[in-house]
Design a protein around this nucleic acid. Structure first.
Lengths: 158, 158
DNA sequence: AGCCGACTGTTTCCGTGTAAACAGTTTATG
DNA sequence: CATAAACTGTTTACACGGAAACAGTCGGCT
């Protein structure tokens, strides 16, 4: 079933959450569960999770990015980024190049196949969210993203 | 260091996020990282994560809750809830009782020690967030929680 | 030049959460 | 009543992400 399977009635909804229900951390976690559920219902056909696609997408927008810089921007650990990039390399979507002037770093590019993949599936992955914010009005959805962007200090860079 | 350690300059911030920067899923994930970072800086002394405390807190508010109902309400899998509850039971904070009329279910209560723990650390765990939304004005923080609550369908039950 | 420290990516190990199968219990159904 | 189906919690196996240690590379300092 969807979340935690259970055919229980509204006994569940009767549970008092107290101040937890106002806690930003709790609300964020539940929201993420909700978004991931939406994604899964809509895009389970593609064998790729939204976070994985976003990496390809950002490489597409920034050819030659350093691997560590990408990791920091996307807030994933360098170790994790290594695993993902090696995976995409094996899959033939990403190419790694080590420049001569600084052989510590790794620059990332999309292969032709990777470029094609991103171009073709762009809309599906980026647009799925706007179709599914059914509980929010469009202006509320816009305000929500604005507040989140401000909260994480992502205002100046649209 | 804090997030992904890296002494890099603003090379990182120059990376173009494109439409990803407007994606609700992406923003939610970054926000959660942010909140968890806040918590860690403030409450690393307690040997308990916010999600773990929230379970004790909700049991405190709803003595005798069924374990599965609690899991569904908090959106954690039943298997995971089993591990957590058994852990708290060993630690002497939670007591499990199996009622005679339905021996499939498990009802949860706090022990005296558990009650004391929640009462004493209540403020520290629930209040840490309001101290740390420094990038948001109070009214913006309130609006953000309101929108998140609406987004996950948690409106009627304050 | 040579050494020390910092940077970058990688590897290894471990904690946590999930999925799937399981066991006991209750309810529905013939 | 007996059998099947559904419910509830538990166990087991595994995938994912993080922390820490590691190896190669570069810069600074004497």
């Amino acid at each position: 079933m969807s979340a935690t399977d259970l055919a229980a009635p509204d006994e569940v909804e009767a549970i008092d959450l107290g101040k937890i229900g106002q806690s930003l951390g709790f609300l964020l976690r539940l929201s993420q569960v909700e978004v991931f559920g939406m994604f899964y219902r809509a895009l389970s056909c593609y064998e790729m999770k939204p976070g994985e696609f976003s990496i390809l997408y950002v490489i597409h927008l920034n050819p030659g990015v350093r691997q560590g810089a990408l990791a920091k921007r996307l807030m994933v650990k360098r170790a994790q980024m290594t695993k993902l990039i090696r995976h995409y390399e094996r899959r033939g979507l990403v190419a790694r190049t080590i420049p001569e002037d600084n052989r510590r770093t790794v620059h990332l590019h999309l292969t032709d196949e990777g470029t094609r993949f991103v171009s073709e599936n762009d809309r599906a992955f980026l647009g799925y969210i706007h179709q599914e914010t059914d509980r929010l009005t469009p202006s509320e959805a816009a305000e929500l993203t604005r507040l989140l962007r401000k909260f994480i200090g992502l205002e100046g860079t649209p």
